[in-house]
């Protein structure tokens, strides 16, 4: 079975987000970039399934050369080979076209990715790739099992879940608690250095959306403290002052 796992390169979850003075880009100074946490579920589950069923796990990233350390990290965790599409990931549609092109060429059975990236929070790429390839998408999935060429998935819906069966090929976007994301071990780190990493140039149409400015949320006025002894007063304030209950 051939797995394609799409990863994006995002600021670490502990990052305090700031922007360049013109507010057009993230201020990358001092920011550590990691594999998008949701993509780690996709990567680990693909590796687990490969170990069970046999096959090959390819990771794909759309990014410039500075994303290679995280691609190597994915190889160290257990992917077999990698593709880097040499371009800035300008928007979801642009990225989806790159993934679809690679998927067509490689003939993958299952295309996995995280639910969304923690920087753009698009939650779009999975559906776009499915539509571009004319195959089903299951998003967001919390469970994925494969037998023969049929997969059984649990898909999260508001207030519950659905059990879905699909035949390969299909696209799945993953989230917790699908698996326990793995971290690289020493042997993995050593072997990752020599695993193949192919760099390809982008294809398809330009982005359809463009970010013109970023902004931080407005700052809070400061906390109003209520003594614990008169905790009940809080409820009065929530009704009469904040008017939320």
């Amino acid at each position: 079975m051939k797995f394609l796992v799409c990863i994006s390169n995002v600021p670490d979850t502990t990052t305090k987000i700031t922007f360049t003075p013109d507010n057009k880009e993230l201020n990358k100074a001092g920011v550590q970039f990691v594999i998008n946490p949701w993509d780690e579920y996709a990567l680990t589950r693909a590796i687990e399934l490969k170990e069970k069923l046999g096959g090959n796990v390819t990771v794909l990233n759309v990014g410039e050369a500075d994303t290679e350390p995280n691609i190597r990290k994915a190889l160290a965790i257990g992917a077999d080979d990698a593709i880097r599409v040499n371009a800035k990931p300008t928007d979801a549609f642009f990225v989806a076209q790159q993934i679809a092109a690679a998927a067509k060429e490689g003939g993958y059975d299952i295309i996995l990715m995280g639910k969304e990236s923690i920087d753009y929070n698009g939650f779009q790429v999975h559906g776009m790739v499915g539509e571009l390839l004319g195959i089903p998408t299951v998003a967001p999935a919390i469970k994925l099992d494969v037998e023969g060429n049929t997969a059984t998935l649990e898909r999260e819906i508001e207030g519950g879940k659905e059990i879905v069966e699909v035949a390969t090929p299909f696209v799945v976007s993953c989230q917790e608690p699908m698996c326990e994301p793995r971290i690289p071990n020493m042997r993995g780190i050593m072997t990752a250095r020599t695993k193949p990493l192919k760099v390809v140039e982008p294809t398809g149409e330009a982005a359809r959306t463009q970010v013109t400015a970023f902004a931080l949320p407005p700052k809070k006025q400061g906390v109003k403290l209520i003594p614990a002894e008169s905790a009940g007063d809080l409820i009065k304030l929530l009704r009469n002052e904040a008017k939320v209950i």
Binding site: F93, A96, G122, Q124, V125, H126, G127, G130, A139, T209
Partner: peptide, 24 residues
């Protein structure tokens, strides 16, 4: 809506209808 349904349908529609898409 930016729900699990909205995101799943909206992303496919954007390709089918050649539309630009903003979520959230």
């Amino acid at each position: 809506a930016n729900s699990n349904i909205g995101a799943a349908v909206g992303s496919r529609l954007s390709v089918r209808l050649q539309a630009s898409l903003a979520t959230n």
